[in-house]
Amino acid sequence: MPAIEVRQLSKRYGALVALDGVDLSVEGGEFFGLLGPNGAGKTTLISVIAGLTRADAGRVCVMGHDVVSDYRLARSNLGVVPQELVFDPFFTVRETLRFQSGYFGLHRNDAWIDEILANLGLEDKANANMRSLSGGMKRRVLVAQALVHRPPVIVLDEPTAGVDVELRQTLWKFVARLNRDGHTIVLTTHYLEEAEALCGRIAMLKAGRVVALAPTADLLKHHASAYLRLKVAGALPAEVLALSPRESAGTYRFRLAGFDQVESILAPVRTRGLHIEDLAIESPDLEDVFVQIMEGAAA
């Protein structure tokens, strides 16, 4: 039984097609990445899975429970960390977590709440009002709220947007540990290096459609070619620039159709006697794959 099963899911907002026949399933225990540019439909998809949005067509099940007809069990099996930094200013951290636990019918859950607080570095903030917390601390509380009812499936919607490096690392260590303990993790992020490091399988969305769905290793292997990084003293010859390299601070990055192409790039440079300041062959990363797939996919 998949942890999450999405079948032919469609959702429109007026003329805007947010989801267009999305099909995917996430197996139990997976660390699954959901990537796509802004407006691709990631948050809409998560909202439908979480029951926050009603789909126009299609079906979603969480741990085998339909999110509409069997919503009580579906939602009990799901923990969601929302993208927005939201909180209730009336309450302390502990009250917030007790309420969230109680909403799921868990009324005596302090031992687990203490464990989550300790794991997220929130012990000394337990009795602080939510208003007094920094943005990073509020983000930790959001994660704690998603875990408070021990859901087997956890969805994190851009949990590291706008947070510092230390918190990102703490959070990823904690989430990786949850995954090792058997929790299914679904992650959306714009930090593709994080997705590459953490996710075993990735789906890419564009304009509400799944344009790629494969294990991360397969995406890196099949979808991207190697790159040549080159920096020269002076301007690159026109025939080299015609290959449309990406430029950053005077360094050019060429996508290679094959290693033979290296010579065709370097020959004009050598002919004009330009001094090479930096040269390297780079393996593709997930960002390269992402760019290639997004450029290749029809809008």
Partner: peptide, 17 residues
């Protein structure tokens, strides 16, 4: 931390109130 278990389904009414 322990492995996930099937969560109970109780009522959130009293907590929301």
């Amino acid at each position: 931390m322990t492995a996930p278990e099937r969560p109970p389904v109780g009522s959130g009414f009293s907590t929301l109130l």
